[in-house]
Amino acid sequence: MDVVIGADKDGFDMKEQVKKYLQERHYHVLDVTPKPASDFVDSALAVTKEVMSGKAHKGIMFDRYGIGSMMAATKVKGMVATNVGDETAAHQTAEHNGAKAIAIGTGLIGIDRALGLIQRYLDAEYVDGRHQVRLDMLAKMI
């Protein structure tokens, strides 16, 4: 699976640890911030661009609280992203909401928890069906 990752200065250290974790598990990792982005808006939009272009299947964004990256990413038409802090939410957002990216707040959770929720997110696939109705409703709002 192709995964794109990006971070601002507050998320950079965790992003580097996650990158190593993913590579050790044979994910193809596209790092859009080999150096920290100056702002979470820049890193989130870089991740979003790669996911929306089809160059990556899923994206992971890192900043201090995760909320800023999520907000920036979801400004792009068609992007579904959320801020996650637990494994159930990470799984459900992929399976039920078709999330194309998740945002992680490095000031809120540690690396062990982050790795657990990232793995749950990556292991989940969108199930479509009744959940597509909601995505269609969201698409009409933009």
Score class of each variant (00 low, 15 high):
Met1Cys: 10
Val4Leu: 06
Gly6Asn: 07
Asp8Ala: 07
Asp8Cys: 08
Asp8Met: 07
Lys9Gln: 13
Lys9His: 15
Lys9Leu: 11
Asp10His: 13
Lys15Glu: 05
Lys15Ser: 01
Glu16Val: 13
Lys19Gly: 10
Lys19Met: 09
Tyr21Phe: 15
Tyr21Leu: 06
Tyr21Arg: 11
Leu22Met: 05
Leu22Ala: 09
Gln23Asp: 10
Gln23His: 07
Gln23Gly: 05
Gln23Ile: 13
Gln23Ser: 12
Glu24Phe: 07
Glu24Leu: 13
Arg25Asp: 12
Arg25Phe: 05
His26Phe: 10
His28Val: 11
His28Ser: 13
Val29Ser: 05
Asp31Arg: 01
Asp31Gly: 03
Val32Glu: 01
Val32Ala: 02
Thr33Lys: 02
Thr33His: 04
Pro36Tyr: 02
Pro36Ile: 00
Pro36Arg: 01
Ala37Cys: 05
Ala37Gln: 04
Phe40Gly: 00
Phe40Trp: 13
Val41Tyr: 13
Ser43His: 06
Ser43Phe: 08
Ala44Asp: 00
Leu45Gln: 12
Leu45Tyr: 05
Ala46Leu: 12
Val47Thr: 02
Thr48Asn: 11
Lys49Trp: 08
Lys49Glu: 15
Lys49Asn: 14
Lys49Val: 08
Glu50Phe: 05
Val51Asp: 03
Val51Gln: 02
Val51Arg: 00
Met52Ile: 04
Met52Glu: 02
Met52Trp: 00
Ser53Met: 12
Ser53Ile: 10
Gly54Asp: 03
Lys55Ser: 13
Ala56Gly: 01
His57Met: 10
Gly59Phe: 01
Gly59Trp: 00
Ile60Glu: 00
Met61Glu: 06
Phe62Arg: 03
Arg64His: 11
Arg64Glu: 11
Gly66Asn: 00
Ile67Ala: 09
Ile67Gln: 11
Gly68His: 06
Met71Asn: 03
Met71Leu: 14
Met71Glu: 02
Thr74Glu: 14
Lys75Asn: 08
Lys75Gly: 10
Lys75Tyr: 05
Val76Glu: 12
Lys77Pro: 06
Gly78Cys: 04
Gly78His: 08
Gly78Leu: 09
Val80Lys: 14
Ala81Phe: 01
Ala81Tyr: 01
Asn83Gln: 12
Val84Pro: 03
Val84Lys: 02
Val84Glu: 01
Gly85Cys: 11
Gly85Ile: 14
Asp86Asn: 11
Asp86Ile: 00
Glu87Trp: 05
Glu87Gly: 04
Ala90Leu: 08
Ala90Arg: 02
His91Trp: 11
Gln92Lys: 14
Thr93His: 03
Ala94Pro: 09
Ala94Arg: 11
His96Ile: 07
Asn97Pro: 00
Ala99Phe: 08
Ala99His: 08
Lys100Asp: 06
Ala101Gln: 08
Ala101Cys: 10
Gly105Asn: 09
Thr106Gln: 06
Thr106Lys: 04
Thr106Ala: 09
Leu108Cys: 07
Gly110Gln: 02
Gly110Asp: 04
Ile111Asp: 13
Ile111Cys: 07
Ile111Trp: 06
Arg113Asp: 13
Leu115Arg: 13
Gly116Asn: 15
Arg120Lys: 15
Tyr121Phe: 15
Tyr121Arg: 02
Tyr121Asn: 02
Leu122Glu: 06
Leu122Ala: 08
Leu122Arg: 02
Asp123Gln: 04
Glu125Ala: 12
Val127Ser: 15
Val127Gly: 10
Asp128Phe: 11
Gln132His: 12
Gln132Leu: 15
Val133Gly: 08
Leu135Phe: 09
Leu138Lys: 12
Ala139Tyr: 10
Ala139Glu: 15
Ala139Lys: 15
Lys140Asp: 11
Lys140Cys: 09
Met141Asn: 06
Ile142Ser: 15
Ile142Asp: 15
